[in-house]
């Protein structure tokens, strides 16, 4: 099994295409962070105490308004509480430090999904397209093991992209803003209480929650790749679902059954911020739905890959 994964990795990383994708990932992170740095540079003329005090006054003014949206009011109050805490304990806010860029970059995790789909859609189908599947399957390794090794190699690839994202955004922001705030805690309001959280821990939690949706989309691409044996179809369909899924959700939000859709459950950060797609959805509900989809999709991949004749 170890050797099979080595083989799959060799087939991934000894291709120019793969490095273009990794380069693309790095390029987006670098570009995004430079833009953010450029904007932050112009804004940060004063020291941070003055800045947050100004921000607090601004929020206070907003709170005076009469026809205030309930969600906005909550948001303003949370911000004010956090600012008070920061001023009181002399804790630098993330703005103007390396952490701002790093946290913002976490939203680029969507790009990881996109780029991994390209490899995942191709990893089975291309073996059929080029005919190499005939030499691959006549070895003393069961088809299940070969399928599994490809799946593991995919997960490893998405992790490589995640590391690219983390390392580049960390180093680049460190260089641009200085590494002096590395130990800065994250101040958040949880259940009405201001708490300090470890920044690294929070960052990786965000990464891993994003990773769950990446895994689901890899699984979809994998299943289509295995069922139709066509790279183009697998890549197009998976990327299509990735984008169309969210649009579809907005349309179907009114229907109760839409909470059973895969896309309604892939984004688990909805529970971190306590704003589920539909009322009554809980973290364990979503995990349950995801597990069912995960099992069914993989079962289809497995059946399609192991049971069908190779006549290509």
């Amino acid at each position: 099994m170890y050797n099979l994964v080595l083989n799959e990795n060799m087939k991934i990383y000894r291709r120019v295409r793969t490095w273009i994708l990794i380069g693309l990932m790095a390029g987006f992170v670098i570009l995004g962070n430079f833009v953010m740095w450029h904007e932050a540079k112009d804004a940060s003329a004063d020291d941070w105490q003055t800045q947050v005090t100004q921000e607090k006054e601004n929020w206070n003014k907003q709170l005076q308004k009469t026809n205030l949206d309930e969600g906005l009011e909550k948001f303003y109050k949370e911000r004010i509480a956090v600012i008070d805490y920061q001023l009181e304990h002399d804790i630098h806010p993330t703005q103007g430090t390396m952490w701002n860029g790093i946290l913002e970059s976490a939203s680029l995790a969507m790009l990881i999904t996109l780029l991994t789909i390209i490899i995942a859609g191709d990893i089975i189908a291309s073996e059929f397209a080029t005919g190499t599947i005939k030499l691959l399957l006549i070895r003393p390794a069961s088809r299940l093991k070969i399928l599994l090794s490809k799946y593991i190699a995919m997960l490893m690839f998405s992790f490589v992209l995640l590391l690219t994202l983390f390392i580049i955004s960390f180093l680049l922001n460190g260089i641009l803003f200085g590494f002096n705030h590395m130990g800065l805690p994250l101040i958040r309001l949880i259940d009405g209480q201001v708490v300090e959280q470890n920044m690294f821990l929070y960052l990786w939690k965000t990464y891993l929650l994003n990773g769950i949706s990446t895994v689901m989309y890899i699984t979809i691409a994998f299943m289509i790749s295995s069922a139709f044996r066509s790279s183009a179809m697998a890549i197009a369909f998976s990327i299509g679902t990735l984008f169309a899924g969210n649009i579809l959700l907005e349309v179907l939000r009114g229907y109760n059954w839409s909470k059973y859709l895969l896309f309604a459950n892939t984004d688990l950060t909805q529970y971190l911020d306590n704003r589920p797609f539909q009322d009554g959805m809980t973290l364990s509900f979503s995990i349950g739905v995801l597990v069912v989809y995960f099992v069914v999709l993989n079962l289809i991949s497995w059946l399609m890959f192991t049971r069908r004749d190779v006549a290509a």
Binding site: R14, T130, T132, L135
Partner: peptide, 9 residues
């Protein structure tokens, strides 16, 4: 089996 198709890259 048929042509010896290898990984060209």
């Amino acid at each position: 089996v048929e042509n010896p198709e290898m990984y060209k890259y």
